[in-house]
Write a protein that binds this DNA or RNA. Structure first.
Lengths: 374, 374
DNA sequence: TTGTACATCTTGTACGTACAAATTCGCAAG
DNA sequence: CTTGCGAATTTGTACGTACAAGATGTACAA
């Protein structure tokens, strides 16, 4: 075979620097691999070939090759030859740790979701690494940068931070995609990024709950929605869908937008709440936590659920059946969501073309917080 | 310097097998390091020395040494010599992941504990790996074996599985100690194993709660304790302490031992519960979960708390203030416990002689579930 | 068509030589 | 006592040779 070209290339490289010949050879081979002149799995030039090509001794060639072998780039087989390693197999597919990033650790949904994730991943031999953003974009950034820099995980399961407002870390998600690290969002997601998500159908949930209130005779229906969370936006959209379907007016003054912090201290929004509630017979609550707190606040004002106002929410958590008034609520899949997310992430790891998106169907559990309005 | 001895040793090794000379040399040097003949940091025999000692060429010696260098056991410095690497520094101290192993993910204590752990470790640049035993010794075994075999974590924070009954995995804890992987128990611990723990003082908690009942005039005091959990045993011991101090009789027929599964479905033990409760005016409840369920069960029987019976518990969780009857309870440190465990584990990583044991002080929050008995 | 033997090519082991480059240490000069 | 120089020591690079051992394909025989 003709070997004119390598000669030239070799000489040029050789001239460039005053570094040892064997290191120049290492560099040249690395370049060949990087520029795909040498494909993974393919057989490399034999030692004698390289010796002749570069005009060095076979020992020098062996020195260079042993460096590359220790780096894992190539593989030598006695009697057969030297081969380029498939790097992808050597890296991503050998990994057995998955990173789970969530916002807060709330008391009811998260523990069961993480348990679902861990159960599935553990069975498949993966370990689970966990980090919390505390719903801070700054911390989300640090965590993602850490994951990217360490470059050790097989995939990421991520609960997005403040998905309802523009995220300053989108470039990091781009970087993750560029590196082909499988990632899947849970609960919430960014519609603009084409990243798979596993969640309930939040828009349908908003619609289902509102429809239920309508079917029970309510016409003046307000709502409490989360502003900094994509789920809040979608549930609101579903609420609007249902109201429009029924030909009912949407009264902006009966909608209260809260953020994650507000939810934890709902009593601080007492005046606003009472203002929104006044004149409504039914109310959509973003989740059980909101509904539960609201019932307590209203009770102190002498407003009783469901006698004075009906309300329905989403999550069907422990809170739904813990208080005096058992909540009508849309169940959250909890560990099933975690399991599904983990299963789909594993499929994405095995097959990068697999689309891991899954939305759970919606149903509604009727209890005591909604009554018929005549 | 005399070099008679190495000659003999070398020859013997050389005779043993029909493997390449350079591999025999590798083996010999590895043995020297393992048997501490060559100490970390110390200078190795020079290439020429080894060449003479083993009667091989310098190239063969270099081959052997390069193998060991790639394994990270030794370090070569041109002009100076070859040195034995300090393995501990190269391994354990460079690690930045901590494994957290817990039993179940309950709804209130665990999420805040893990949050405390994660906050502290994240700030110090560590990542957190998590696994759940589901309170099964078999799964605890698999998880620990996995941790040991992978040999990647800087330390372990562990909630013991069924610490109240003999653990079949003690040999794994021995192995972990042998490998000098720092480990710390949380909540519960094995007194026989000298492994540090961070927990509340459970015996004091049992004593404090029982004393409170006694101080409120109760004399016939029963208790519900967890059998499969060391914390249950200790709280019982504290209960006994307090009863003895006050000169009160302990009536075995008023003590109910439950296991972790029973707690989740307390209504299944209804008959036993009613039997134990009968004749008592005060009751120690293992935790809020037990107390909360018990109040519901008793209510259905027409027995009211605190009018008909007083009860106090441990944890002071969300459940304590969620029901109709607000619970008198001993607070669990929750995230503080996680933070303390993480801080002490980090100290143990930096200083292997540090004893990470810490027990939180006990106080009691008085609410509505205990009334004065005349 | 199948199986065996052989030539040939490949990497592996092993020895030897020579000189380069970095470090160390002793010795002499200041 | 300090500084500087040079010799000695140590590892690094580079070449060469020789033979061993494993893999592969071809020619030939059954």
């Amino acid at each position: 075979m003709g070997d004119g070209l390598p000669f030239g290339a070799a000489l040029i490289v050789n001239m460039e620097k005053n570094s040892p010949k064997y290191l120049e050879l290492v560099k040249w081979i690395q370049q060949q691999i990087e520029t795909k002149e040498l494909q993974p799995g393919q057989k490399m030039y034999s030692e004698n070939k390289l010796k002749d090509m570069f005009g060095v001794s076979r020992q020098t060639v062996r020195h260079a090759i042993s460096v590359l072998e220790n780096e894992g780039l190539i593989r030598r087989v006695q009697g057969s030859g030297t081969y380029i390693n498939d790097n992808r197999l050597a890296n991503l597919e050998k990994r057995t740790r998955v990173s789970v990033v969530t916002t807060y650790v709330d008391g009811y949904i998260f523990p069961r979701t993480i348990q679902g994730i861990e159960n599935v991943l553990f069975e498949q031999g993966y370990s689970v690494q966990i980090a919390f953003t505390n719903n801070l974009n700054s911390r989300e950034r640090t965590i993602l940068e850490d994951i990217i820099n360490r470059d050790e995980v097989a995939g990421i399961i991520m609960e997005t931070t403040k998905s309802g407002i523009p995220n300053p870390n989108l470039h990091l998600y781009q970087e993750i995609r560029k590196r082909r690290i499988p990632i899947i969002f849970i609960n919430s997601y960014y519609p603009l990024l084409k990243i798979p998500h596993v969640s309930i159908n939040d828009r349908m949930a908003g619609r289902r709950v509102t429809r239920h209130l309508i079917s029970m005779g309510h016409k003046k229906i307000g709502g409490i929605f989360k502003l900094d969370d994509g789920q809040g936006h979608l549930r609101y959209a579903g609420y609007v869908d249902a109201m429009n379907e029924a030909g009912l007016d949407i009264d902006d003054t009966k909608i209260l937008w809260v953020d994650t912090e507000d939810v934890k201290h709902l009593e601080k929004s007492r005046e606003k709440l009472l203002d929104r509630v006044a004149g409504c017979t039914g109310l959509f609550c973003y989740n059980d936590e909101v509904a539960f707190s609201l019932i307590e606040i209203l009770k102190k004002e002498g407003i009783h659920v469901p006698e004075d106002i009906s309300l329905a929410s989403v999550d069907d958590s422990e809170l739904a059946v813990l208080g005096d008034v058992q909540l009508t609520s849309v169940p959250h899949p909890m560990e099933h969501l975690g399991e599904k997310a983990a299963e789909n992430l594993l499929k994405m790891i095995k097959d990068p073309t697999f689309d891991g998106t899954y939305e759970f169907d919606i149903n509604i559990i009727q209890r005591d917080s909604v009554r018929k309005f005549k």
